[in-house]
Design a protein around this nucleic acid. Structure first.
Lengths: 92, 92, 92, 92
DNA sequence: CTGCCATTTTACCGGC
DNA sequence: GCCGGTAAAATGGCAG
């Protein structure tokens, strides 16, 4: 039954069962997440806004900052920095 | 302390921290998942096929059959199924 | 005019405007695509199946066959193919 | 050949051909886009940064602003506004 | 030519 | 029950 066509059925089965196990854990977690949001909502919070806040907090943690220098060079070249006339004005 | 606009900051804070905690756990799990696939790949398995297998195992068997049937109906309607011609050829 | 840091703002501006123009055209096309699917759905077609069909038509036929074969090999290795038992049953 | 199992093969074919036609146009556009980026790169621009700029310009055009009031209420409740002690400090 | 990353597409979930 | 938005999967381009 196993080791057909040169692949190890047992090895494959182990990988797949491992994946399925991890996915089950993940589903549990996501259910917990939904529960938290549901409870928050039930006491009057706006879930959509909560998600925005969480996203903001996540973004802040990211580097982002690194390439901003280079970005500023290009912005300056484009006149997108405050001190220059901006591309946006032309677009408007 | 910060109950502004009728919202309890502390309560909201707790919800958000709970969410962020759960999301972190989820990220860990997903990293584990990636690792499993990476290892499977490194020993020669085809990750894409593995995912198809896992998806099939997740679906209810009746749904699998139903979808395959529908696909065949559409194929037939478009003449993509060789069945008819080949039947003719066999009959000839 | 704004050649700061050795970068030509005008040249960059032209590139970016060209990109934005092309992306706008692309957005129009994608909206058209959505409309087509929506209309197909409104007259009773299953959009998901339609997309499967389109993907199949895009693939080279040999690749389709190859992938199906590989899938069957994996299924066999996992005992997901009824073929063998049913053959035995038929022999019995 | 058509109208098997109660679906109209011709109708389906028309939908699908329309989709494939639109997708071809889209592929052409995307190739043009790649060409623009390639040329920009060839004269020394950083494609990644260009894409960031384009993304920024896109975001500015979006509303975004609407729900920011409500968002601020929550931020205030969380102490995320300048005048209050922030969640971030606690996280740090 | 292989692995990585970004983009795109698909599937899911909650809301109306 | 459909639609919208959001998260996951897959595809494709790019660099090394």
């Amino acid at each position: 039954m196993t080791d057909i066509s040169g692949i190890s059925g047992n090895q494959l089965r182990l990988f797949i069962e491992k994946v399925e196990c991890l996915e089950e854990e993940k589903n549990d977690l996501m259910e917990n997440l939904r529960d938290v949001f549901a409870e928050a909502k039930s006491v009057g919070f706006d879930v959509k806004i909560m998600k925005q806040i969480i996203k903001l907090r996540k973004m802040k943690k990211e580097d982002v900052v690194e390439q901003e220098e280079l970005l500023d060079i290009y912005k300056a070249a484009l006149g997108m920095l405050p001190s220059f006339e901006s591309l946006d004005e032309q677009a408007a």
